[in-house]
Design a protein around this nucleic acid. Structure first.
Lengths: 358, 358
DNA sequence: TTGTACGCGTTATCAA
DNA sequence: TTGATAACGCGTACAA
């Protein structure tokens, strides 16, 4: 059951069927109808592989993403999915959890085009790889990562971190901890560095000395955040507020605070980064990234590049601080334990009361 | 840069190159090495589409899943991804959010094999569709759904629901609400019905009359769960415990309890279904499904079917009740408001104390 | 064990 | 506006 069958059934040549299939302009309406009827009658659907082979286009986008089950990536993925299907593209998922996998996907996969383009999320991409993409004529867009040779969509991590810490300072905090993420292999390369820069800039702007003891770099996980917080909170001179490099880590910080009997926000203020769904649920103050929008824009730029080569471009997306109830003005020392807040003010208890989200 | 270039470079015919590429037995080690060297030297990677066209195999698995961002599906997806890559298969994601999309993917997509097999998750599949798959010789495995003509992986939803409700009864509850999920179009067809059956069976087994007022069917979302709980909890005679058809809905129930000032588990016990990551985090008692395992098994059965046709089989996976801290023995009436629990016993506060997970 | 020729189902290019 | 025909790159009989 192929294009010849349809042609025969409709009494035309295969060229005409192909034109109808691809919505080519030059075909008489009457003929088109006849072909269409034959197609419907035979339940004919073109063969994808043959089509790819002939046209050099697969209408498939490759998506290289680390740890795709993590909320941040899921949200980006969602934006990608919506945009891709809207434009008639399919999406194949390459999950990266090891450096080997990363190298494999970024080196082998592009060589012969099973995909029309590649979206690389949160993965560092070196010059030689970028150069190879160019040589192969494989359109690539980076999301949450940067390379001068490739179109890159980044959020302003420095500014986001700075805003978060400046907000804490404005609340009266001076002892501000930072639970950063680690740079594992080639993952999340600039992210950790940039958020660190933002943290230090904010401190410097207010002439607060930088204290390396108040910084820890952990896995980008709940357990990591928890461990990081444990280190900071057991110091003789502990931070009164902690900025975490991701919401997931912030979650771990909250758990650790809970475990040590510290109330949030009275005894410890917490700010996360990302604004995943859970952040809203737990009323976590956080730096919001436009994750859906990033996915969508990435697809659109990639498709543009597939249509015709574009000069590499770096797009900076804005972040916004979302005020929720894990932050509050610094309580006067030694009074915090009996502050004005209700005794039931756990994280969950406050959630219905203090909503300043805007 | 194709197989001919490699052949020329190695001084052999393309047949030999092909044999090397596909690990065919009959090739002299010396020749193999020469070909391999040429492949490496030219950075040659075979063209996927051409390969598919020639062999009739794409090494791609289609994954049709509704609302893939929801935790249950993500977990299944994760299992699928691991198994698929382990076997050298790629994975293309078809997200379904409307009946139109469902029909499209289940009717058009299979017609001409871009994929070697299809995994359909939580979607009802009717006889005619199953029949069509058979006619097309397209291997299909159903996950969390059932059709007699197709290999189906299901969990025992009836038993799971029954276990949950029986547990509540064993704790002394007699007024047990049920926040079920709706059957939207062709989504989650049997699931809602089966969990309802389990609920009613448990009641019947203990001679507790079924009270339709204590049942509501909502969206499978947090907002849905919340709305369902609102209906039940505002009744003059309100339930003392609520069983929710999914963890996500249970979350909504928790929120609503919180909003009405009901303490969990003293004033209201809650059991969910699925055991998503969040359930552990919030210490929600729930019925656990082996989500990763389902994804993995599904892939393995699908691959087996791709190798050679198998008779349809229904595999029942076990569920297990996970005891956490949103359930407790029913407090004596009128005492619950001043029970022995600490005043700070919100959901979060209890989480470190009452852990009976096994 | 190796090389050759053909087929897979399209798209694209021409000439009509 | 249409039909014939040559790619597309590989797998695979079949012949050597």
């Amino acid at each position: 059951m192929n294009i010849y069958d349809v042609a025969k059934q409709a009494g035309v040549g295969i060229g005409t069927v192909s034109r109808v299939l691809n919505g080519s302009a030059k075909v008489k309406p009457e003929t088109r109808e006849r072909v269409q009827a034959a197609i419907n009658q035979l339940d004919y659907v073109p063969h994808g592989a043959a089509r790819s082979l002939g046209s050099g286009r697969s209408h498939v986008l490759g998506l290289v993403v680390p740890f795709f089950t993590r909320p941040f990536f899921i949200e980006v993925l969602r934006g990608v999915e919506m945009a891709a299907t809207a434009h008639g593209y399919e999406m194949v998922l390459y999950n990266v959890e090891t450096t080997t996998q990363r190298d494999h996907y970024l080196r082998q996969l592009p060589m012969r085009r099973r995909v029309d383009g590649l979206l690389v999320v949160s993965l560092f991409c070196d010059e030689s790889e970028a150069e190879r993409f160019r040589k192969m004529n494989l359109p690539v867009v980076l999301v949450d990562s940067y390379n001068p040779l490739l179109t890159s969509l980044v959020v302003d991590n420095i500014s986001g971190a700075r805003q978060a810490v400046e907000y804490l300072i404005s609340l009266g905090h001076r002892q501000i901890g930072f639970v950063n993420g680690v740079k594992v292999g080639s993952f999340n390369f600039n992210k950790a560095d940039d958020r660190m820069s933002g943290y230090r800039q904010a401190l410097a702007n207010s002439d607060i000395p930088y204290n390396p003891e108040w910084v820890s770099a952990t896995e980008w996980t709940r357990a990591g955040g928890r461990e990081g917080a444990r280190q900071l909170l057991l110091l003789p001179q502990r931070p009164t507020a902690i900025f975490a490099a991701s919401d997931v880590q912030a979650l771990g910080v909250m758990e650790q605070a809970q475990a040590q009997g510290l109330r949030v926000p009275q005894d410890l203020c917490i700010i996360g980064f990302d604004n995943i769904e859970l952040a809203e649920l737990l009323n976590l103050t956080t730096v919001a990234q436009p994750m859906h929008e990033m996915g969508k824009q990435a697809v659109e730029r990639l498709l543009a590049e597939i249509e015709c080569p574009q000069p590499p471009q770096t797009v900076m997306m804005d972040v916004t601080l979302v005020h929720r109830s894990t932050t509050a003005p610094l309580a006067a020392p030694n009074v915090s334990a009996f502050s004005t807040a209700s005794v039931r003010d756990g994280v969950w208890a406050t959630q219905q009361n203090i909503i300043t989200e805007g």
